[in-house]
């Protein structure tokens, strides 16, 4: 990661500090801009065109609600479901641990567990697929 630019302007007792650097997901050319202005901090992530358009399918899959992905880097400490299970809204699917705290990842609706790519005690990256759900057939 590289450190690029800090700009500081003064005006009416106000300060703005801004910085641009390569994003956390290295090798993808992602950029991140941090701005601090009047006590407020703003972070803007610019994903490169390639991953925005080129792989639309994967992108939408990431965002769809029947996919459980790791919201943060950490360890999988409990998998509360098995393949074929019916899960309901609010039901805990996976428990993760990061920074010494336990986090429960819950279902956003009623689904059937399709597959569980993660294993117990796996150290996972942010955004890694944990559980694949599928719609309940009516």
């Amino acid at each position: 990661m590289k450190f690029y630019f800090t700009s500081k302007s003064q005006g009416r007792n106000q300060t703005l500090t801004a910085l641009k650097a390569a994003g956390q997901r290295q090798g993808e050319g992602s950029l991140v801009t941090w701005v601090h202005i009047n006590g407020k901090t703003l972070c803007v992530t610019n994903e490169p065109e390639r991953s925005k358009r080129g792989n639309k399918k994967q992108g939408s899959q990431l965002l769809s609600s029947n996919t459980i992905v790791a919201p943060m880097p950490g360890k999988v400490t409990k998998i509360m479901v098995s393949e074929g299970d019916l899960v309901t809204q609010g039901q805990t699917i996976v428990v993760m641990e990061a920074m010494k705290m336990e986090y429960s990842i819950k279902s956003s609706g009623s689904y059937i567990v399709h597959s569980i790519p993660c294993k117990l005690n796996d150290q996972v990256k942010m955004g890694e697929l944990l559980v694949q759900l599928k719609e309940v057939e009516k």
Binding site: F5, A22, G29, L31, V35, E47, P48, E49
Partner: peptide, 18 residues
């Protein structure tokens, strides 16, 4: 500020637009 920052290119990087 974003416009000013745009002039700073990241080597090998892709999208630079804010």
């Amino acid at each position: 500020t974003s416009k000013k920052l745009q002039n700073f290119q990241i080597s090998g990087g892709g999208g630079d637009q804010l």
